[in-house]
Amino acid sequence: MSQSLAKECNEAKERYDTCFLKWYSEKYLRGNGTEQNNECSILFKEYSSCLQVALKERGIDKLLEEAREELKDSDSTYMGKKK
């Protein structure tokens, strides 16, 4: 798997990525992955809480917010929703 930009989050990321890939290939692609809470949710929370701290420390959280705003239109294009 790929690394995290923050070394201290690598272990949590690895655990989550492994779980996600299994879920994606074995459940989601077979049509059994629509529930919001799945077996990887807790692992994601652990990874994410580590990552959020690292993003804030590096000042990336604000840049992400801007980029998200910039790509906002793709949500309506690709999520199949009307604006």
Partner: peptide, 26 residues
């Protein structure tokens, strides 16, 4: 040249089944 890939958020839209993921690529 790609040194890190981080997942920022991820969700499945219950209505369409579309999996939406935000990632940060370094």
């Amino acid at each position: 040249h790609v040194v890190a890939v981080d997942t920022i958020s991820r969700s499945v839209d219950p209505a369409t089944g579309i999996l939406r993921t935000e990632r940060l690529i370094t």
